[in-house]
Design a binder for these strands. Structure first.
Length: 904
RNA sequence: GCGGGGGUGGCUGAGCCUGGCCAAAAGCGGCGGACUUAAGAUCCGCUCCUGUAGAGGUUCGAGGGUUCGAAUCCCUUCCCCCGCACCA
């Protein structure tokens, strides 16, 4: 037989063609509620990388598994095709973003096909075509109808050289340089379009609790991001400037507020800067919000504490951020780390007003004030030095103070900001707005959508600004001359609802077919990188909720189960182009085949864990597939001697008098292991723990190889087991599985085959395997320790029935004296000393006793596995019942542990 | 700092939820053997220490604890990774 492996290129191309021919992955519109399996669609950057391969292998394997289980499956793919890299690439190559993007898509689609990913390509979507992005515009209008769109001034990163806005991620280093041209980035105030995601902050936060199919890490990251905090707003009067609102979560510490601080860009700070040089100098030169050190400048003003009436100094301080709370805070150095540090530096008073709650506190007494000179006390406790509020616990004090202070009100703050979607770029969805001198910004009417992108103009700034002809239009309201909005949308808008478009990708009069979406959504299993934990996943949840409220979608969450897949690393480091430590999927496919790449990745680790790419591992996987291929080909070619037709059927156990392990017991062993593999692999595929499922499949193949080597396999059992092994591997190695399925003479495609049926109780399987493994190990130990070079015969003797009975009794019994209880059973008592000895063993190990297989089951299991021992030691093995064996040997046998006697 | 996830034998990596069958799967690497003219592939073993009949000892980051019994449960501590963060 050949050990060259198989011709993976030929096999893979052949079955890719066959699948296409058979339309194997098509999900018809008529199906009721398919299992929706989705991988995050890629940005078409040019080529697939290993991260993509892993991501899409996971979804593909799961989709194939569900299909074999009989589900209708929806498994689509598309392209996140808008984005700045296309503009840059177009400039570099002197082409345009559209052509470049479609080239990339063609390449990547081809690579996906060569990986054997089974997508319904009839549902392919591409976000950069007007047929898609017109619905971004339409949705923008619906959001506007629902009062969820706002245009306002915002501060953005601006590169003066590229003349465009940069995302935060595109500003590099502490020096804040443009990622493209290393120009220092400036901030600019621009009119920006926002989607009011904060309107949904509470629901987005609270519904996280019910996302039980999501990893905790992602759930927690979203909670942090939304950052809801309950507290109190209240006014401090600043002389000459009136009242200023501050937000605090610790109004219970207000008696210890010894100064007041304003953000450098707070309106009052800016006002002060005009008159006060020191303040101006601080704001312009010293303030360093990114530094560790809190800096500030005294304004000479005072603020009035609304409770105590005390006048406290007002500072402008750089640790106060204008976008947190109200940009102004009451500072309590006795009970806040940062305020403490600042007070020490500026020489402000530090007063303790909360004491730790004493262990034996009666709920009323006022404890001694703690020493907060060196360290603040930041926990809740009992109020001290707080007038009438002294002696209250922090919680109660917060409630009362919020009630009692006239300007105070309970207030909830969020870290989540509204979503600024304006981008001053070409390659995105034009925001469907026209600016009219008289009417202001006006939405483009639905019937005029889509607003299509004009031809790309290679220019330094925003090409849309340069598209004079395109820009000029008329106002939809008054008909006057007007100009188009030149901002395009953040590409996260595209991806916030693309999973709905797959339901009806060609629909011309709505973004998605509502009835079908109601049936098909939510996505049952979503798989993607952790880098999207917040942005994409939060925006998608937001869109889904808005669509539920405004458009009749009957689902409020888009993704039931989420898997954040781990990274593919090389030598413990993330693969990246800049480090040059990438492994090209294309090379792997050429060298070893797609099935090898897929199988290697899936068996290397749990899908959510990082793992190291290993060329050795790939080779090993490749050899495994070659061995499997050989095994099946050789059988199909009739090169395997199989037992004749007079062979005993499985389950038709050999008669008990025949105690040597015969061929038919081997058949039983193989049949049982096959059932076990099916049951376990199925459970594990369900849980997406492909690594464990595949281990079963690989072990089964190993067993079958031994079977063929050691015995003349029973034709039906052998063929069924080969058939099962092929099907267990089909979700992950689909091409070779098809090839071997055909070789075995099966009808149809394995992709359409049923998952094999088998009943096996996992616990029993594990006990059986454990018994066999332990027994083999014991034989090895004995042979080794006793220095037996060439065993002549090995006897394995199962314990007598009464010991199983005694064990059973011991397990059930709660009597103090087990022995007397056992001796009440005449069939045990009559064993005399042996019974007493065993009884004592049981008594001594009372707590550690474990249920074993029944005696007959142990006998059968050992007989079935005897061939493994024979093969290993090249000696005949007799598996005997106690009654048939020598008493001196039997004595050592216990349930779960047969006696072993080796003759030299 | 807060939150999340980890630390297992030469390496990778299961096991931990649901304690005993765990000196701890599997793969890789290493060693020995079979096959081969040889290499490769394949197959059979070994791979913490001691041991002439299945035993004993010491191990799962460290230290305590619970338990008849801990890689597994609890507490403390150290280290690594990820996310958030002068967040009022």
């Amino acid at each position: 037989m050949s050990h060259e492996g198989y011709d993976h290129t030929a096999v893979e191309e052949r079955w890719q063609a066959a699948w296409a021919e058979a339309d194997a992955y098509r999900t018809p519109d008529e199906v009721d509620d398919p299992t929706y399996v989705l991988g995050m669609y890629p940005y078409p950057s040019g080529k697939l990388h290993m991260g993509h391969v892993r991501n899409y292998t996971i979804t593909d394997a799961y989709a194939r598994y569900r299909r074999m289980r009989g589900d209708d499956v929806l498994h689509p793919m598309g392209w996140d095709a808008f984005g700045l890299p296309a503009e840059n690439a177009a400039k570099e190559r002197d082409t345009n973003p559209r052509d470049w993007t479609f080239d990339c898509i063609d390449t990547m689609r081809g690579q996906m096909r060569s990986m054997g990913f089974g997508y319904d390509w009839d549902r392919e979507i591409t976000t950069c075509v007007p047929e898609y992005y017109e619905w971004n515009q339409w949705l923008f209008s619906r959001f506007a109808d629902a009062d969820l769109v706002e245009r306002r001034d915002a501060e953005v990163n601006w590169c003066p050289s590229c003349e465009t806005v940069l995302a935060d991620e595109q500003v590099e280093g502490d020096a804040e340089l443009c990622w493209r041209c290393d120009t220092p980035v400036e901030t600019r105030d621009l009119d920006q379009w926002f989607l009011k995601i904060t309107e949904y902050a509470d629901e987005l936060l609270e519904a996280i609790d019910d996302l039980e199919g999501w990893p905790n890490s992602v759930r927690q990251m979203q909670r942090n991001w939304i950052g809801r905090q309950y507290g109190t707003t209240l006014d401090f009067a600043i002389e000459e400037h009136g009242s200023v609102e501050a937000f605090t979560t610790r109004v219970d510490t207000i008696f210890g507020a010894t100064f007041f601080a304003l953000a450098p860009d707070h309106p009052i700070s800016e006002e002060l800067a005009e008159a006060d040089d020191a303040v101006r100098r601080f704001i312009e030169e010293e303030a360093d919000p990114d530094g560790d050190e809190p800096n500030g400048v005294e304004t000479g003003l005072t603020a009035t504490n609304p409770v105590t009436g005390e006048e406290i100094p007002v500072f402008v301080a750089d640790f106060v951020l204008s976008d947190v709370g109200t940009g102004a805070l009451m500072a309590v150095p006795g009970h806040d780390e940062r305020d403490h540090a600042f007070a020490e530096k500026m020489g402000v008073d530090i007063e303790p007003v909360v004491a730790p709650e004493p262990d034996d506190w009666d709920g009323e007494a006022v404890p001694d004030a703690p020493d907060v000179g060196d360290e603040p006390f930041t926990d809740d406790g009992v109020l001290v030095n707080s007038g009438a509020y002294s002696g209250l616990d922090s919680d109660t004090a917060r409630e009362r103070l919020t009630e009692d202070i006239e300007s105070a009100a309970e207030s909830t703050q969020y870290q989540l900001r509204d979503w600024g979607i304006s981008r001053q770029r070409y390659w995105g969805t034009p925001i469907p707005v026209v600016h009219c001198d008289d009417c202001g910004p006006v939405l483009v009417p639905d019937e005029d959508l889509p607003v299509e992108l004009p031809e790309f103009i290679n220019t330094t700034g925003n090409p849309l600004d340069a598209a004079e002809e395109w820009k000029e239009t008329t106002c939809p309201e008054c008909g006057a001359q007007a100009t188009r909005e030149t901002d395009t949308m953040d590409t996260f808008v595209d991806s916030s609802w693309y999973f709905l478009r797959y339901v009806s990708p060609d629909l011309a009069d709505a973004p998605f077919d509502l009835d079908r979406a109601n049936d098909w959504m939510p996505v049952d299993q979503y798989v993607g990188g952790i880098e999207h934990a917040v942005m994409h996943l939060l925006y998608s949840r937001f869109f889904t909720k808005v669509l539920a409220d405004e458009e009749g979608l009957e689902h409020r969450e888009p993704f039931t189960n989420l898997l954040a897949q781990g990274m593919v690393q090389l030598d413990g480091e993330k693969m990246s182009k800049s480090k040059g430590n990438t492994v090209s999927p294309q090379r792997i496919v050429e060298e070893y085949g797609a099935d090898t790449a897929r199988l290697f990745m899936m068996q290397a680790a749990q899908p959510e864990r990082d793992f190291d790419w290993s060329e050795e591992g790939v080779k090993s996987t490749h050899r495994f597939l070659a061995r499997l291929s050989d095994l099946v080909e050789e059988y199909a070619a009739g090169d395997v001697e199989t037992a004749g037709s007079d062979a005993v059927e499985p389950g038709d156990a050999a008669d008990a008098s025949d105690s040597s392990p015969d061929r038919e017991t081997i058949d039983e062993y193989v049949a049982a292991e096959t059932d076990a593999a099916v049951a376990i692999a199925g459970d594990e595929y369900d849980d997406l723990t492909f690594n464990v499922a595949l281990r079963e499949a690989q072990d089964l193949v190993g067993t079958l190889r031994s079977y063929r080597e050691h015995a003349e396999p029973h034709p039906e059992i052998y063929e069924r087991s080969l058939d099962v092994a092929v099907r267990l591997l089909a979700p992950v190695a689909p091409h070779l599985a098809e090839e071997l399925w055909e070789t075995l003479g099966r009808d149809g495609l394995v992709v359409d085959a049923d998952w094999p049926a088998a009943t096996a109780d996992r616990e029993t399987v594990e006990r059986r395997r454990r018994l066999v493994a332990n027994t083999r190990e014991d034989v090895r130990d004995i042979v080794d320790v006793a220095g037996i070079d060439d065993p002549e015969r090995i006897d394995v003797v199962v314990a007598p029935g009464w010991k199983y009975d005694a064990l059973e009794l011991a397990l059930d019994s709660d009597a103090d004296n087990l022995i007397s209880e056992l001796m009440q059973e005449s069939h045990i008592r009559e064993r005399g000393d042996a019974a007493a000895d065993y009884g004592q063993d049981l008594q001594a190990n009372r707590e550690a006793l474990r249920e074993t297989l029944a005696g007959d089951d142990e006998f059968d299991a050992l007989r079935a596995a005897a061939w493994l021992i024979e093969r290993e030691f090249d000696a005949p093995v007799r598996v005997e019942r106690a009654a048939d064996a020598d008493e001196s040997v039997v004595r050592k046998a216990e349930p779960g542990r047969p006696a072993i006697d080796i003759a030299e």
